[in-house]
Simulated scan of single mutants.
Amino acid sequence: MRTIYENYRGFKISKQESIYNAEFSDRIVFSRWQLSQVLDTVDNFVEVTENSQDRRSEDHPEPGLPQN
C-alpha cells in the first residue's frame, strides 16, 4: 500500500493495487478506481457534513448569543 496524502481533509488517501482508498480513523471509508473519484467523494462528504453541522447550530443556537 502506498500513501498518497497523509491528511487530505482529515482522510489518509492511499493506493492498494489498483484501488484508491480514503481512510478515517484507521477504517477504509471510500474505495474508488480513480484518484480523482476518491478525492471528489471525500470533498462531497466533508461539505455535506459541514453543512449539516451548520444547520444544526442554526436550529439550536447557544444560549446567550444574539440571534439575527
Rank of each mutant, 00 (worst) to 15 (best):
M1A: 12
M1R: 10
M1E: 06
R2Y: 09
T3N: 08
I4D: 07
I4P: 05
I4Y: 02
Y5P: 01
Y5M: 03
E6F: 10
N7T: 06
Y8M: 05
Y8Q: 02
Y8C: 03
R9L: 08
G10K: 09
G10F: 09
F11A: 05
I13M: 04
I13V: 15
S14W: 07
K15G: 03
K15E: 05
E17N: 15
S18T: 09
S18Q: 14
I19P: 01
I19F: 05
I19M: 08
N21G: 05
E23A: 05
E23D: 14
E23P: 05
E23K: 13
F24L: 15
F24E: 13
S25E: 15
S25G: 06
S25R: 13
S25T: 10
I28K: 00
I28P: 03
I28F: 01
F30P: 03
F30G: 14
F30N: 08
F30A: 12
S31A: 06
W33Q: 15
W33A: 15
Q34G: 13
Q34P: 08
L35H: 04
L35F: 09
S36K: 15
S36Q: 13
Q37K: 05
Q37L: 01
V38A: 07
L39F: 02
L39A: 11
L39P: 00
L39M: 06
D40Q: 14
T41G: 06
T41A: 13
V42M: 06
N44A: 11
N44M: 07
N44D: 04
N44F: 07
F45N: 14
F45W: 14
V46G: 06
E47M: 12
V48D: 12
V48L: 14
T49G: 03
E50N: 11
N51M: 02
S52P: 00
S52T: 03
Q53M: 13
D54K: 13
R55K: 00
S57E: 01
S57W: 04
E58R: 04
E58W: 10
E58F: 03
H60K: 00
H60G: 02
P61M: 02
E62T: 14
E62F: 11
P63K: 07
P63G: 09
G64I: 02
L65I: 12
P66H: 05
P66A: 10
P66Y: 04
P66G: 12
P66R: 04
